[in-house]
Amino acid sequence: MEQSITLAGFTSQLLVGLSRAMILFIVSSGLSFILGVLRVPNVAHGSLYMIGAFVAHSVATAVGGVSGFWLALVLAPLAVAVISLIAERTLFCHLYEREHLMLLLFTFALMLILGDLTKITWGADYRSLTAPPFLQGSVSVLGTAFPRYNLFLLAVGPVVAVGLWLLTSRTMFGKIARAAAVDREMVGAIGINVSWVFALAFVLGCLLAGLGGALVSPTVSITLGMDHTIIIETFLIVTIGGLGNIWGALAGSLIFGITQSIGVLILPQFAIVFPYLAVVVILTLKPTGLLKSVW
């Protein structure tokens, strides 16, 4: 316990926290996007993340090598998008007129079903995936060894953030989606098919969950329980960030990732408690989240 905190140790933990935050951001930005447009907390988000990880593992091991890794990064989000599109078009879209609680419970039902379907498809074994050769090993950053794959994550996170920002603020679809969130009847009145706007928004959000799962797969053991932990974490992140705000999701993810990694240096056993404490402190001071909610 009496180990002094060196600068090198601090830097390395900080970088670990940042790369963890990137995964959290990619998943929670999808959750936040769905919240912003559909106003539904998608409880099944964690399951889609898990499915993304399993698909990425299957694709990467089946194809192998560097091309397998890239193919996994493309196919896993697509597979998740197809699953969510089917669920949305067959069942979910019929519920938009109903109470929000029903929508939430529907996504919970989806989580239960997807969890067991994952168990049926991939079994209950632990799986692990190794990163492609060019992302293996570590590089020296400020005197500490830092895994290359984490640097890769640090590069991907901002790309997704900027891409999502451009999509929501600069494209027609983004503008329609935001308008539909504010007043769906008005958007429908000018001749736009709101149901399909919601469908695309839902699928896009779920796709991000799948991408997060695919990206995280080389760094963790892929198991059935991984949906439960991520869904709580991302829920908290979007809450402290401000519901529906993409930049809020980024801020929340950074807080969550960094408090946990710095917590490891202070109290290793309770490291996981630190982000939750940060959440409680933030919400007590600012109950509606750090940044402005889109609602």
């Binding site: 709580i232 829920f235 908290l236 979007v238 809450t239 519901l243 939750y276 404490l277 959440v279 919400l283």
Partner: peptide
Amino acid sequence: YFGMLQISLGSL
């Protein structure tokens, strides 16, 4: 927001 806040406190 009530629900989300409660999920976070309960999870703590």
